[in-house]
């Protein structure tokens, strides 16, 4: 495998959640979430009961992948920031450390300027957290819950 497996531990999850929770408040955002580049939702905060975060996560990753593809054709490294303006809702998408995607959904109670400012600070913090997480995952002996599963466990999952 070329990519190390994405693993989330409690310690780092709590750190990430703290950053995301704060970003909702500081940026006056409706929803903030973090997705990995494969579309897996990592953390979310704000008014998440009223949005389908799983679908948004997959579409965001698709969007970033498509934009990344365009960047490559133009010999750009990456388009790290995207902004979509709607009538009521706006979406700000930021690539963090070329690894995860930070999405902020906001309305007229906030502004693009404020969101950009707060996203910048949050990105720096998130980058550090994900760097240390990645190191931890790559350490030898990092245990996986799947090392001990048996063939029976897998079979049982498929017994209707």
């Amino acid at each position: 495998m070329i990519n190390p497996q994405m693993v989330m531990y409690e310690e780092e999850f709590n750190q990430i959640q703290t950053v995301v929770d704060r970003l909702v408040r500081d940026a006056n955002a409706k929803v903030v979430f973090i997705v990995d580049k494969n579309g897996q939702l990592i953390a979310a905060s704000g008014d998440i009961d009223n949005v389908d975060t799983t679908s948004l996560a997959s579409l965001t990753a698709g969007n970033i992948a498509a934009t990344g593809g365009m960047a490559k054709l133009l010999k750009e490294n990456e388009f790290a920031t995207q902004f979509h303006e709607g009538e009521k809702a706006n979406i700000h998408i930021q690539l963090v450390g070329n690894r995860v995607i930070l999405v902020v959904i906001f309305d007229s109670r906030s502004s693009l300027g404020l969101v950009r400012l707060r996203v910048k600070k949050a990105s720096e913090e998130l980058n550090l957290i994900f760097e240390s997480l990645l190191k931890k995952v790559q350490e030898p002996g990092a245990d996986s819950p799947f090392a001990e599963i048996t063939d029976d466990d897998i079979d049982n999952l498929f017994n209707d």
Binding site: N3, M6, M8, Y9, E10, F13, D36, F146
Partner: peptide
């Protein structure tokens, strides 16, 4: 690349 989330006790593939 699967994603193992110990916090949510989830594995995503």
């Amino acid at each position: 690349m699967s994603f193992i989330n110990y916090m949510a006790r989830e594995i995503n593939c």
